[in-house]
Computed example of a mutant assay.
Amino acid sequence: MLAKNIIACLMFIPEKIQLNPQAYLKCAVCGEEYPLELRYRCQACDGGVLNVVYSSTQTLKSGSGLSRFEDFVPIQPLPEFDCPETPLIRLDNPQYVDHDGIYCKVEGALATGNTKYRQSCMATPGLLWGGVKEFVVSSTGNSSSSFMYWAKKLEGLIRLHVFVPSTHRHRLKFDNPYATIHETNVDFVETGKLAKEYALENNLFWEGGFFNFFRREGLKTGYMEGATQLDFQVDVVFQPISSGMGFYGGYFGFKQLLANGYIEKMPRFVAVQQDTCPPVYTAFHSDREQIADEDIVRNPKGKAEAILRGNPTASYPYLRDLILETQGTVVAPTQAELLESYEILQETGISACHTAALSLAACKKLIVDGWISSSEKCLLMLTGGRS
């Protein structure tokens, strides 16, 4: 019934998908501006990322869900693509780590079991608005599954080609006739290259990954929602990263909250990787402006499967800039530390996958090291639930 209602709403009247009239695009590298359109890279420079910026004051609405952020996102939220509020739970386990300000944002409560549901609630109508009904996507599972979810719900209104490494095929959810799976025998980074080639050869739309601003704009709402749940008192933010898409989006969400007077200062942003696949960690702590060959991890392995991206060359410069600007850092817990935090969350009754558990492991390390004071509040993005 839900699918038929959505189709009735969207099939013949795409005009119902309305843009925020105050939103436009601006290149993070050269500052070139563009109207809001399906353009992901700047043509005026060497393909800089395009971010959504807003020309007027924004106000948070009452209630919950995406409609609360109507002024802060590029597509006016539709009830059919709403994203419910997820729980924020304070961790109280002094035996594990003695700190009163650890708050876990439980994104596993969303329909797809992870935070990538947020991206698809914004990117799916964004693609439909742009006239795209068939496209190519590649991921380690969560992003592709979020689009597969909507392909199934919309019963063919969108169709997608999903490229996935054989090592991650088991992570895809919501198999349906409208999602064609292309399984590869190479790692995730090489799989992404094959996906782009396939899109070009078959005249299909490549949906953009990290550079798809609709994705980032959807993902930032988790950060903004967490800030509202903490009465806008957030000192440090943690998220496990692959390309850093949600991390980068969350930074812009907090920038908007700052510009509109909801917060007094930017929190420090902490990117988290695992010790077996830490290219951002090694590059950042070596003070490199670009990913070097020695940072790249080929055919990476690790318990946090969702972030096994061994070569984040395209997105790293943007992540580095925001971490430096917010006086943040990058942490890479060991597999043992990851497993400990995973079990602690389970014992506490908080659902988190191995990737999500990295946020807690990193938070503990920085508390023990004295990088986080006893009075600071930490927002931990637990990006996925325990399967």
Rank of each mutant, 00 (worst) to 15 (best):
T112I: 14
Y103I: 01
N93G: 06
T124S: 14
V106H: 09
V73N: 06
V53C: 10
E134T: 14
N93K: 13
R39C: 08
Y54L: 02
L60I: 12
G48V: 07
L91F: 00
Q58V: 09
Y103A: 03
V49H: 10
T115A: 13
D92H: 13
Q76V: 15
I75Q: 10
V132Y: 15
F69E: 07
I102C: 03
R39M: 10
G131I: 01
S145P: 04
Y54K: 03
R90S: 13
P74Y: 13
S144E: 08
F72P: 02
K133F: 07
T57P: 05
Q119I: 15
F135K: 02
L60M: 09
F81M: 07
A44E: 15
F135L: 01
Y149K: 02
E80D: 13
L50P: 00
M148F: 04
H99D: 11
P77V: 09
Q119R: 06
G48L: 10
L88A: 04
P87G: 08
Q95K: 12
G131F: 01
V53I: 14
L50N: 00
S64H: 13
E33A: 09
Y96E: 09
V97E: 10
A123H: 12
T124N: 11
C104F: 03
A111F: 11
V106P: 01
T140K: 03
V136T: 03
R68W: 05
E85N: 12
R41V: 04
Q43A: 12
E85P: 01
G65Y: 05
T140H: 06
V52N: 09
L91R: 07
G113T: 04
P87W: 07
Y149R: 03
L50G: 00
Y149S: 06
A44S: 15
D100R: 12
E80W: 12
L128D: 07
V53R: 10
E85L: 05
R68E: 08
R68H: 07
P35F: 03
C121R: 06
C104H: 03
R68S: 10
G130I: 05
D46P: 03
V106C: 14
R41L: 12
A123D: 14
M122K: 02
G108M: 00
S139G: 08
C45N: 05
V97D: 11
E80F: 15
S146W: 00
W129I: 04
P94R: 14
G63P: 04
P35I: 07
D71W: 01
D82L: 00
Y40H: 11
S143I: 09
L78W: 06
F147C: 08
S55F: 06
G126W: 01
D98E: 14
S56M: 08
L91G: 07
T140F: 03
L78K: 04
L127K: 05
S120W: 00
T59M: 11
T112P: 07
T115F: 15
